[in-house]
Every structure is written in structure tokens, then in C-alpha cells.
């Protein structure tokens, strides 16, 4: 049975020369969906992605990634929505492609954020007039 896990690979430095995504697909039979990546040679970098496959394949892949000196963080939410800064104007909702930012009840028109739906496209960072959305990294 396949599961999907959202993980962040953090590259302390330089481990960027290996074709990581290729091997995740080819050797560990995983489906990879990259949300955000910053991988620059000779600098620290990160890769935020969904891994879909069997628990066993995901575990083996993560062990291999760790053996390269890459740190793995789970449960990372790259986009934060500050409820106190949000005024529920609703300007963001037409710019959020997955409806992570949405209006659950049209009677109150309050805006809500579902981090599980967020694919970190970062549209909201620019579209929010009140600076309610920010990026963790």
C-alpha cells in the first residue's frame, strides 16, 4: 500500500552533486513531487517534496539520503498563515491554486488555511495585502 509523506531534505553544504531525485525514482520506486527547492553548489540548500511509495521503500530511501549527510525533517510547513494578521478580505482565494486558502462559510466570509492542501506556490506571499502569509525559509 502506498503512502505519501511530505519531507524536507536539508543539505548542510555541497552534497548537491548526486542525482538524488533520479535515484529516489529509479532505485526506491518512489513518486516524487517537488514543492520547493534551492540547491546551489557550495552552499546550503533544501528540497521540499512529497514521497509516495510503500512504507518500506520510503524508509530505505530516507536511510540512503541520511547516509549522504543530508538531514531529513518531517512535518515541515514552508508557508505560514498568521491568523492575527489576516483580515479575511479574501483577495488571496482566487490566487491559491489548491484552495488551501479558502472561505469555508460564505455567511461569515472568514478566510481559513488548510496547510495540507498547500503546495507552496508562494502566490499568497505577494497577493496578501496585509502580509499574513510568509515563508519559513
Amino acid at each position: 500500500m502506498n503512502t505519501t509523506r511530505k519531507v524536507l531534505f536539508y543539505f548542510p553544504r555541497s552534497e548537491t552533486d548526486k542525482p538524488i531525485v533520479y535515484r529516489l525514482v529509479k532505485e526506491f520506486d518512489l513518486m516524487v513531487n517537488i514543492f520547493r527547492a534551492k540547491v546551489t553548489p557550495e552552499e546550503e540548500g533544501y528540497l521540499l517534496l512529497d514521497l509516495t511509495g510503500t512504507e518500506e521503500d520510503i524508509r530505505r530511501a530516507c536511510d540512503w539520503i541520511r547516509s549522504l549527510g543530508v538531514q531529513i525533517r518531517e512535518g515541515v510547513k514552508g508557508v505560514r498563515w498568521d491568523e492575527d494578521r489576516c483580515t479575511s478580505c479574501g483577495n488571496c482565494v482566487t490566487h491559491c491554486p489548491t484552495r488551501a486558502l479558502f472561505i469555508p462559510q460564505r455567511s461569515s466570509m472568514k478566510v481559513s488555511f488548510d496547510p495540507n492542501q498547500c503546495i507552496e506556490c508562494m502566490n499568497c506571499l505577494d497577493m496578501c495585502p496585509f502580509g499574513a502569509c510568509s515563508s519559513v525559509f
Binding site: 479575511s88 478580505c89 483577495n91 488571496c92 472561505i103 460564505r106 461569515s108 466570509m109
Partner: peptide, 25 residues
Amino acid sequence: LKSGEINLGGVRVETGSMSSYAMAQ
């Protein structure tokens, strides 16, 4: 407008607001 979409000549267009109804409430 508050329903989330309007009909413009048969085409459905998504709506977003600059004014906050929730804050007005």
C-alpha cells in the same frame, strides 16, 4: 460576488475581495 463567482456573459469568473466582510461584521 460573495458567492465566490459571478457570471459574465455565460462565463463563470472567480471573485476575490479587498474589503473584509468578516471585519465589517
